[in-house]
Amino acid sequence: MNPIAIGVFIVIALLTLGSGIMVVTVRNIIHSALWLIASFIGVAALYLLMEAEFLAVVQILVYAGAVSILVLFAIMLTRQVTGEGVRVVFERWWVALLIALGLFGVIVPTLWKHGATWEEAAKLAQVGPAPVEGAANSLQVATATEIGRSFMGEYLLPFEVVSVLLLMALIGAVVIAYEERTRRRRVLTLAEELALKKRGIVEPRDAEGAVMPREAEGKVILLDSEQA
């Protein structure tokens, strides 16, 4: 029993769960994405604690780096107005809360029922092959070297399949998000918006205050810079 390890685990667990709760409860979706990064980093620290260094680095690179930036980009590109009166959750959000709590109430007793069995199995697994008398534990935890060997040997086919999957996702994302050039919306600069206001042209806006595409109105307003 090592009290430091227990303490570190509890701190990491509280960080991860606390940021997770903030992700699903804060009103501002950008704050939610930032709490998501904190939660990802907590999970990476947990991987480090479990001696999965390679996975911890992958977690930081892919989740805290790429996925969270992608989420932030999506939030900023879709300009969702989250004012005071706007609902951020469904009306029947308490049903979701009941489902989540119910699932937790089913999983945890089941886990603790089998805890003792796993504890024995874990003790057996922590002994290395044929421990030398008097020497320290000879257990060799798998490292990045072994992961690389497995990828190039036993798991070669799944590895290739997942690379094809990533390529498909890349092409699919481009195809789905692609916009015809003629339908593309122009984002006005502040100076252009002021110039439009001076000429008394009001940008069509939807209910939430976002600028509607002018093509949707069937007319194109020429800006000063475009007329010249």
Binding site: L17, G20, R87, V88, F90, L97, I99, L103, V108, W112
Partner: peptide, 22 residues
């Protein structure tokens, strides 16, 4: 247990948020 808690938090978020990004 920690993983189960995180899963249920995520499940609540996925079911309750109106925003698709959420």
């Amino acid at each position: 247990t920690l993983a189960a808690g995180l899963f249920c938090i995520g499940l609540f978020g996925a079911l309750s948020r109106r925003n698709i990004v959420g």
